[in-house]
Structure formats: structure tokens, C-alpha cells
Design a protein around this nucleic acid. Structure first.
Lengths: 122, 122, 122, 122
DNA sequence: GTGGTCTAGACCACG
DNA sequence: GTGGTCTAGACCACT
């Protein structure tokens, strides 16, 4: 299993696939030139329809993240900085939301330490 | 304008309304017994359809957050702490994601300071 | 308190009032010539709006059940057999429904005995 | 035609749909894992709007009676016994009402026999 | 084809 | 004025 898809999320499955692929590139798990799994394989793996994975890959090709090699599959081309920047912006908004709801800086710090200094975290 | 709705988000508008109302209760902007705006007023205010607001309020009634009084409006009943707990859990997952993508603890700390110590934010 | 109104029922409040008045006539609690409570009094008693009671009485006048006496109030005129017949028809439909759902005749008989031979009921 | 909807009833159509679906599960006509008709098919069949059926199914999902599978349909998940218990309680109240209105036990017994021993009924 | 969401507009019951 | 329901029709995501 490459990653997890939340079928109950409101985020479309194909978008979730795009996000996870991009995250794997940013994190270095997928490098330029690597093959991503075939549409059929990933579809089987995630338990979703082939068309859905195909659509995700198509979007990634449009964004220049993947490149389609006829008869072979898709390879990683690269990814700009914009994805990570968007993620950080979303994070900031998330944080502001929590602040508004009365969550203290200390509570946030505690979670931060948990994530960064506890080996049991992802 | 009570709050902002992102019409481009994949999160359904009615869900966004639910979330904002709950956040306002958690933050104390709405207290038990307060009237929330009428479905028609809020719909006009947010630029969405009346039915969409009605659906959001109906869901909040199902969750015990609001109570409907025919011919009068909706009043705030209360909110469990499960909402905030879920928010904090989502935040932690968000954080782990960023860590996996190679974001350093320092970068996160920087954003944290921005949100909590810069009046121009939020 | 004359009777109970279910504010959460889908049956309109004014219809519920009509039904209860009719039931009281059928049962003999209200006889021909009796005064029903004033609109204001009943409204206060039931905790509903004056208009709602007024509407119920208006309907009952239309059906010939009540008669309006200008400046005095409303008196009971009488009630046909149709009300009880409708009630019995509804009861039969209710019973057929339970039968379809697999409720045995014995279970029904048990409830029947409870209602007709237990002084704590009704 | 799956079942009948009373368009003149004060009970909302979506509630009537919920009730009939639940009754069919209790009676065994629908079993766990069965597909219920698609929202569009049932809407066409009953002569109501698609949204109305969708709302009914949504409520049943909230109650844990149905489960939705995107692109496939809704399947029956199960039903607690609370539904039947509520039905029996309503029946008892109905019966007490009739007793108060002067209906004799004998008359009730007669209807009971009609329903349970006459093939022309139900 | 399936479900999920949204809009625009209608009518009813209640205060 | 308030909420509650329903319709007709649209677009999207998914199989």
C-alpha cells in the first residue's frame, strides 16, 4: 500500500492521489526519473477505479510533475516550490484558526515537540 | 459578513458553515442561548442559497449544537469538546505531513511566532 | 392543561388542537352546548400563539363542530361519525403495518389487554 | 412500485420514505447487503423529486441503516430494534386514544381478526 | 449509470 | 418575519 485514501473525505480521490504523489516527491521518496506505479497497479493497491488513478496522473502530467512515456508508464519529472508553499500557507491558516478558538501557544508547542521528537510519529 | 466561505474548496459549503459556527462557539463569539442569524439572512450575507444554510443548521441540530424554534430562529445549545479534539488531531497530522516533506522544526516555529506574536495576522 | 401538544410533530399544531377537541367530544368530555376555552386561555395553556388556536377553532367551525358566538366564545355543536370512522381506519392500517413487520397476533393481544385491563392506562 | 407515498399526509415525504425502508428491513423484504433502489429510480417510481429521496437516504445513513457507496448505490447495513419498539409504543398510544373515545375491546378485537385472518386485507 | 452538492423559487406552518 | 419541505434542473466525482 503506497498511501491511504480517505473515501469519506470531500476532497476528490484523484486530488488526494495527486497530493500524496507530490508529497512523496517533496520528501524524496520519489526522485526525478523514478517510475510511479502503473495506473492499474495503483488502482488495485488503493482499491479505487482505474479511471480515477488515470485522471490523477493526467493532472500531474498537466502540472509538469509527471511525464508519460508511451507504452511504458509515467516517470517523475520534478516539482516546483509552489506545492510546499501552499502547504505552509494552509498550515498557517490552520494555526490561526486554532488560535482564534482559544488554543494557547503552549499547547501548540507541545504538539510540535511530540511530532518532531517522538520516534513513533510518521 | 459573519465569516468567509471558500467557494473553490472541495469542502462542501454547508460543511464550511457548520465548521465556522462551531469555531465561533468554541471561541466564545457565540454563547449558549444566543440566536444565530436566520437562514435567509446568513444566506444573503454569504451569497449562498437559503437551502444550503438550512442544511448546515439542520446538521448542527442533529449534532446537538443548535436548536430550532419554529417561527423564531435557531439558538445555540452547546458543543462538546470533540470538535476541538478533532481539530487538534487534524493539526498534528498536518504537522507530521510537513515534517515528512522535509520542513524543519525551525520553519514551523517561525510560523508559530508569526501567528501568535504578530498583530497583522489573523 | 387541557391536553398535550407535540411541538416536534410534523402534524401542524392547529390540526393537533382540532383532533384533541374532537376526541374530547367523542369521549363525552365535551358535550353539545359546552363552551370551549377562550382562544387566549387555551393559547396560554398550551404555550402556543393565539393565532394558532384561532385557526384551529376556525377550522372546527367550518366543519360544523363548533359554533362561534360573537362576543362570548365558541360552543360545541356536535360531531359526526366520520371522525371516529377515520380513526378506526387509521388504526387498521397501523395494525396491518405491524403485521407486515412480523409482529404476531399474540403480541398485539397482549398490548390490547394491557390497555383495556390495566387501570394505570389512559 | 416499491411502496405508497401519501402526498396529503402531514408527515414529510422524506420521512415516509425512511419509515417504509425501515419497515421493509424489519419485515425481511430488505436484508443486510441488499441494494436499495437508486435515488433516481425510486424518485421516478414514487413520483417525487430526486432530492427528496436523496434526503431520506442521507438520514438513513446518519442513523446507520444504510451505507452509501459512491458510484454504486446504497446498501442496507442493518437496523436496531428501537424502530419496532417505537412503532409498538405508538400503537399502544393509538389504542388508548380509541379506548378514551369509547371504542370497546370487542370492536378492536374484530378489527384484529380482520387483519390477521382475512386474506383480502393488506 | 451511481451518489453529492448547489441554486432558484415555491408553498406551508408558526409568531 | 421565522423555519420546513419540495421541485426542477444543474454540475461534479466516481464505477
Amino acid at each position: 500500500m503506497w498511501f491511504h485514501i480517505d473515501m469519506n473525505s470531500h476532497v476528490p480521490v484523484y486530488k488526494q492521489i495527486c497530493e500524496r504523489i507530490k508529497a512523496m516527491i517533496i520528501s524524496g521518496k520519489l526522485k526525478e526519473g523514478d517510475y510511479v506505479p502503473s495506473v492499474r497497479k495503483l488502482a488495485l493497491d488503493l482499491g479505487v477505479n482505474v479511471n480515477t488513478v488515470a485522471r490523477a496522473y493526467r493532472e500531474l502530467v498537466n502540472e509538469g510533475v509527471l511525464q508519460s512515456i508511451r507504452g511504458e508508464g509515467y516517470i517523475v519529472k520534478g516539482i516546483g516550490r509552489s506545492f510546499l508553499e501552499r502547504k505552509l500557507k494552509d498550515f498557517k491558516k490552520n494555526l490561526q484558526d486554532l488560535k482564534t478558538m482559544g488554543v494557547s501557544e503552549g499547547e501548540i508547542e507541545k504538539i510540535l515537540k511530540e511530532v518532531f521528537h517522538d520516534d513513533t510519529n510518521g
